[in-house]
Design a protein around this nucleic acid. Structure first.
Lengths: 146, 146
DNA sequence: TCTCATTTTGATTTTCAATCTCAATTAACG
DNA sequence: CGTTAATTGAGATTGAAAATCAAAATGAGA
């Protein structure tokens, strides 16, 4: 089982890109923080490790991570891009509480199949999809007496 | 059956907001253009009718239209917000060609039910959802020999 | 190990959508 | 009408993301 670092190095080499300390640090920090980090949040964390790393490099590397398949961009209607880990992580959708922003990852094989079926019916070949369910979680409903 | 204009006027009155020529012109132009318009595209169209109308007013009114239920904001990962008509239009999801941006509206009652089921299982009350399928349409596949 | 073409970096600027500011205007109500 | 609060438009501002570019670093080959 290759580590994420090996995986990323291999990816960079295959793309004739260079393996730099900055890229490895950013990958490292990205892996240490689970959940859905925004570019800006990751930038802050990265600077704790090495404050000389620039913001542009974080943005660029996050894109590379997404291209390599290690990360996946998601968005929760906040106006900022977020990234989640994607290595060996099964595809999943999101259930998001609109009040407290808590996010639950969900998967349903039946839905996946239906999506495929719908695409085919329209002559499409699916390359990806996004399904986000927005709602109120039990705690927020209780707290706010909604 | 109330017209959209009446509907919007009623909404504005109920919110103690004012019925202005600008708002009515923007609504009018919005209704005349089906499909998924971006704020900027709508602004351009609006200026053909009345070039004195400002960009901020178009943005603000588009928000009001969304609040009233006449419009619905959607996003196709382009970095701009788009709006589609929503009055008396049944809920639907999207099938989007990543190459030519063609968009097909789809609905599947079975998926809707499963979504509800998943939410309930996690203790959520659904307030909305978004499902977008990204892929390549038949024409683009043929053209690009993908 | 050294060289050197190529890539990458970081500070900075730029872009672009979207929002805010504010003085002037206008709708709505009596 | 006249008052008041909402609205408008021009322009400034924000904030995320991308572009620029000179300086620094990588890595393939000698």
């Amino acid at each position: 089982m290759p580590t994420a670092h090996t995986f990323f190095s291999d990816y960079l080499a295959a793309q004739k890109l260079k393996i730099t300390p900055q890229r490895m640090i950013i990958l490292q920090v990205f892996l240490e923080n689970e959940g859905h980090m925004s570019s800006e949040e990751l930038y802050d964390e990265v600077r704790r490790v090495d404050e000389s790393i620039g913001q542009a490099t974080v943005y660029r590397t996050l894109k590379l991570l997404a291209d390599s398949g290690l990360a996946k961009q998601v968005d929760f209607k906040e106006g900022v891009a977020r990234y989640e880990q994607n290595l060996g992580v099964a595809h999943h959708d999101h259930l998001i509480c609109e009040r407290c922003k808590k996010t639950i990852e969900i998967v349903d094989e039946r839905i996946e199949r239906l999506q495929e079926e719908l695409a085919v019916r329209s002559g499409f070949v699916l390359t990806g999809h996004r399904m986000d369910l927005f709602g109120l979680c039990a705690e927020c409903r209780r707290r706010e007496d909604v």
